[in-house]
Amino acid sequence: ATVHVKGVTYHFDNPEQAEKFAKRMAKELNGEVHVDGNTWHVD
Results as ranks from 00 to 15, higher is better:
A1R: 05
A1K: 04
T2P: 01
T2S: 10
T2V: 12
T2M: 11
T2I: 12
T2W: 14
V3C: 04
V3F: 01
V3L: 02
V3K: 00
H4I: 15
H4F: 13
H4Q: 11
H4E: 08
V5G: 02
V5A: 05
V5K: 01
V5M: 06
V5T: 03
V5C: 08
V5L: 08
V5N: 02
V5S: 03
K6I: 07
K6P: 03
K6Y: 12
G7S: 05
G7E: 05
G7V: 02
V8T: 09
V8G: 05
V8S: 07
V8P: 00
T9F: 09
T9P: 06
Y10L: 04
Y10W: 07
Y10N: 01
Y10E: 01
H11S: 07
H11E: 06
H11C: 11
H11K: 09
H11Q: 08
F12N: 00
F12K: 00
F12I: 01
F12A: 00
D13W: 07
D13P: 11
D13F: 07
D13V: 09
D13E: 12
D13Q: 10
D13Y: 07
N14R: 08
N14H: 10
N14F: 09
P15T: 10
P15R: 12
P15Y: 12
P15G: 08
P15M: 15
P15A: 14
P15H: 11
P15C: 10
P15Q: 11
E16W: 11
E16H: 09
E16Q: 11
E16S: 10
Q17A: 14
Q17L: 12
Q17N: 10
Q17Y: 07
Q17P: 03
A18S: 01
A18Q: 00
A18P: 00
A18I: 00
A18D: 00
A18Y: 01
E19H: 05
E19Q: 06
E19C: 09
E19M: 08
E19K: 07
K20W: 10
F21M: 03
F21G: 00
F21A: 03
F21T: 02
F21V: 03
F21W: 06
A22D: 00
A22V: 03
A22S: 03
A22G: 02
K23A: 09
K23N: 11
K23V: 11
K23D: 06
K23M: 14
K23L: 14
K23W: 13
K23H: 13
K23E: 10
R24Y: 14
R24N: 08
R24P: 00
R24C: 08
M25T: 05
M25W: 08
M25L: 09
M25P: 00
M25S: 04
M25C: 08
A26V: 04
A26S: 05
A26L: 03
A26W: 03
K27N: 08
K27Y: 13
K27A: 13
K27L: 13
K27F: 13
K27H: 11
K27R: 11
E28S: 07
E28M: 12
E28C: 13
E28P: 02
E28Q: 11
E28V: 11
E28G: 04
E28N: 06
L29I: 10
L29F: 07
L29V: 06
N30M: 08
N30T: 05
N30V: 05
N30S: 08
G31T: 07
G31A: 14
G31C: 14
E32D: 11
E32C: 15
V33A: 13
V33F: 09
V33M: 08
V33R: 02
V33P: 05
V33C: 08
V33G: 02
H34P: 01
H34D: 04
H34T: 12
H34G: 04
H34V: 08
H34Q: 06
V35P: 04
V35F: 15
V35E: 05
V35Q: 15
V35W: 14
D36K: 12
D36E: 13
D36Y: 13
D36V: 14
D36S: 13
D36R: 11
G37R: 05
N38M: 10
N38L: 10
N38V: 06
N38T: 10
N38G: 06
N38R: 06
N38A: 06
T39F: 07
T39W: 05
W40G: 01
W40N: 01
W40K: 01
W40V: 03
W40S: 02
W40P: 02
H41Y: 15
H41M: 10
H41F: 15
H41N: 06
V42A: 02
V42E: 01
V42L: 04
V42G: 02
V42M: 02
D43K: 14
D43P: 04
D43E: 14
